[in-house]
Design a protein around this nucleic acid. Structure first.
Lengths: 220, 220
DNA sequence: AGCATATCGATAAAAGCATATCGATATGCT
DNA sequence: AGCATATCGATATGCTTTTATCGATATGCT
């Protein structure tokens, strides 16, 4: 098995490619050039080629890449092929919304269930995905060998909840809380601080009028 | 006015610092060293100093930085000081959750209202923030000089909705749809593809067992 | 058949970012 | 007062990522 090595920034672009390719109707011409992809996604054409090459997809001059091949390779590489089970801890507004979101299936993700300490939230399972009490978390988690957890609890209990998740076998955490989680080296954390993102946006915007604050911001 | 120049990666770390500093109780020692911050956030101490220096905050040897000064500078730099109005377009599950989320205030953000084409969603304003019909968007948007928009519509209508936003004065978009938005150069877009993030996580996880796919992943 | 053109793949150069190192400065202890 | 120590600020080094350049290859047109 070739241990393909991909840079982190490349890895984050791959879903972009996949999304775009999927958006093309299947009966379109079955082949596409790196140039076209680059133009659509406003990236450098060389970068696209490099990214695609890094996951061992190969194109032909004057022809480009077979779209179906690309999609297949991207999906397999990103693990969309094998269904990945995940749980959501904390079913407040945001957690509930994610739990009900139907679109994860396209990404090979299966949200198994939600968990919450609040009994009120745990009982309202009217036809939608079940929300369990936190006491049931350890058992269900181990039995189903869940590795992916989405953390949407209040900031105050974020770290302790995180510790609990790690303790019971969670290996990767999508962290929606604004706290920096401390985890063992073997556990992966991806932060999604929406408020911070908005703030960064507004900050970039702020100085956009009075002359460029961010370095290397605008790229053709 | 000094046109401070900050690298993009620095800009994304600044909210982290601010969050952490805020989490310290105010009656803690009023001063903190870059070393301490670095340890708490698991960053290099030099990097922390560089970041802080880039927003013109200055510390004293053996003492460190005054926490209150840091917080103040960070807030002003990130634009948390002046209230920033924002709107949410598309009030499905996710949009509704964000609309009801109370925590944005701490970030200087004020979600003014939501908009949606679906009349059913627009009428259910039981005590929460109002959701207006899309027809009212242009007027309200211009009158209140909204510059920030959160896009949470279905992928199929993402681009056209985006165009509408841009047309009516939105200057920065937080994009929750998985499509790559085409905007004029003067408009900023920040993508938040949750599904893709999960996929990236699971992908990193996947190869974490059979030997390192991602380059430069583990630090320290 | 041969030439023009579009596209790929690889190598090289440049830029951006992170990390290490060193001197300077301020505090506290003896 | 003087020394040890912690911390800052600045410079320099190395690594990663992006961008540019060049030759190779395949298609289509004359």
């Amino acid at each position: 098995m070739a241990p393909k090595i991909v840079s982190r920034s490349t890895l984050h672009r791959l879903p972009l490619y996949l999304n775009y390719l999927r958006s093309l109707s299947v009966d379109a011409r079955t082949t596409i050039s790196a140039t076209a992809i680059a133009a659509a996604l406003q990236l450098g054409e060389v970068q696209v080629r490099k990214d695609l090459a890094s996951i061992s997809v190969s194109g032909r001059p004057r022809i480009g890449y077979r779209i179906s091949d690309l999609i297949e390779e991207l999906m397999s590489f990103l693990g969309y092929a094998d269904r990945n089970d995940a749980v959501i801890i904390g079913t407040g507004k945001l957690g509930r919304a994610l739990l009900d979101y139907a679109g994860f299936g396209d990404y090979g993700l299966n949200i198994v269930a939600g968990f919450d300490v609040d009994p009120f939230l745990t009982e309202r399972t009217d036809g939608r995905k079940a929300v369990f009490s936190m006491e049931q978390f350890p058992d269900l988690c181990r039995r189903m060998k869940i590795q992916l957890g989405i953390l949407t609890v209040p900031a105050a209990v974020a770290q302790e909840t995180c510790d609990l998740m790690v303790e019971h076998g969670i290996r990767a955490i999508l962290n929606f809380t604004p706290v920096h989680l401390r985890v063992p080296e073997t556990v992966l954390v991806q932060d999604v601080d929406i408020a911070a993102m908005l703030a960064v946006l507004s900050s970039r915007l702020l100085e956009y009028e009075n002359g460029m604050k961010i370095k290397g911001d605008q790229k053709r």
